[in-house]
Amino acid sequence: MDKLYIICVDDQREVLNALTEDLEVFENHVKIEECESVKEAWDVMEEVDNEGDYVALLITDQVMPNNTGVDLLKKLSADIRFGATKTILLTGQATHKDTIEAINSAHLNHYIEKPWKKDDLHATIKTLITQFVLDKGLEYQSYMDILDQSVLLNNLRKTT
């Protein structure tokens, strides 16, 4: 089974704790990495890629010291290694402009406002991970428990 990673980036420790706690349900199938800064997140993602594993999903805050979440998203979308990586901007502080930029020039997949609802977050992550697994052509059976049904079924219909 290929190793998938969810990278969480937030400069606030408590938020990171709360976030990863909510992601626990995915942990049997996906590895979760916590990062406190954009730079750290990038290092971790490069390491994951070097190991031959996949960064399936990046969940990032917007307002952080040094680099913003949108900076990270832009860098990610420009990097061919992470072409299939799905992204969530999880923030309460992104301005209209930030968000537009994230969508237009960083191909943001999803925007979630803080404080997030656990169920919404789960549903979104399921959908995005399913899309990632299908995009990458990974063995979907191994991740069945955490995949979104309708996305999976719609995709399987197209196979022969």
């Binding site: 999976l152 079924l153 995709n155 399987l156 196979t159 022969t160």
Partner: peptide, 16 residues
């Protein structure tokens, strides 16, 4: 005429 998997996927997406 279709694969069992594709058929199931289609019918389940109607059913779910």
């Amino acid at each position: 005429f279709m694969s069992n998997t594709a058929t199931t996927a289609m019918m389940l997406s109607i059913l779910v």
